[in-house]
Design a protein around this nucleic acid. Structure first.
Lengths: 115, 115
DNA sequence: TTATCATTTGAACAAATGTTCATATATAAA
DNA sequence: TTTATATATGAACATTTGTTCAAATGATAA
């Protein structure tokens, strides 16, 4: 951080806070997780997979979206390793691949439901 | 949910999952929280305010953004009751207003840093 | 009052995003 | 092989989003 030629009200506080900040790399990783959950369709997909695996067209029914739209979103979630898939014949089953995301969701759910 | 005239591979599983889903209203509330944290500038703002309050221009320095850009983002965070502000003369100090968001962030931070 | 500082706001623009549609795989059954 | 089913993919489109810039507040000091 370069605060030399920049207006800065409380330089000491800024320095301390700056030291406490995660690296940009880690901030970006956090952003990716939050971004993944910040779309209604994707969040509903993850919520749907919280307890059990589902195939793509059942997820589409649960989300009220087309198979194609869901498939696009599943690819995003797959890329982020939030979900994984296994094939059984013609059917592709998706399930949660990241326990931590489950915790995040349960915490935010608790927040909006009671408190 | 209307699954009458829709293809549905495993109707029983879909029904169970459907019952376990939060209401659309609560899903949207969760989305709003995640969306708020899914932008690098906003996340950095919230991270900067995790331990202490800061004024707008110090937050701008910490985020490497213009005062104006930060002010716009602060308004979004304020509307969502994630941050609050207090005036001291010409200076406006912002701080965290939602303990639960702190928990969410700490959890995601733990996830990206170790494991 | 005037001048200056800290912040806010509105409009405009560029960039990112999600869905749709059409098409392409992949697998199974006929 | 041909046909049908389940899913995936690419391009296009509309919408949303974040930043910039200029101008407007609100507050203090001269």
């Amino acid at each position: 951080m370069d605060i030399c030629d920049v207006r800065c009200i409380d330089e000491e506080k800024v320095k301390k806070t700056h030291q406490s900040l995660p690296s940009d790399e880690n901030i970006n990783r956090m952003v990716e997780i939050f971004k993944a959950l910040s779309d209604p369709t994707r969040l509903k997909i993850v919520l749907s997979l919280l307890n059990r695996e589902h195939c793509v067209c059942d997820i589409a029914v649960l989300c009220g979206q087309s198979d194609s739209a869901v498939s696009h979103q599943l690819r995003i979630l797959r890329t982020l390793k939030i979900v994984k898939n296994r094939r059984e014949g013609k059917i592709m089953y998706y399930s949660i691949n990241d326990d931590h995301v489950v915790s995040l969701i349960q915490m935010s759910l608790a927040h909006v439901t009671h408190g």
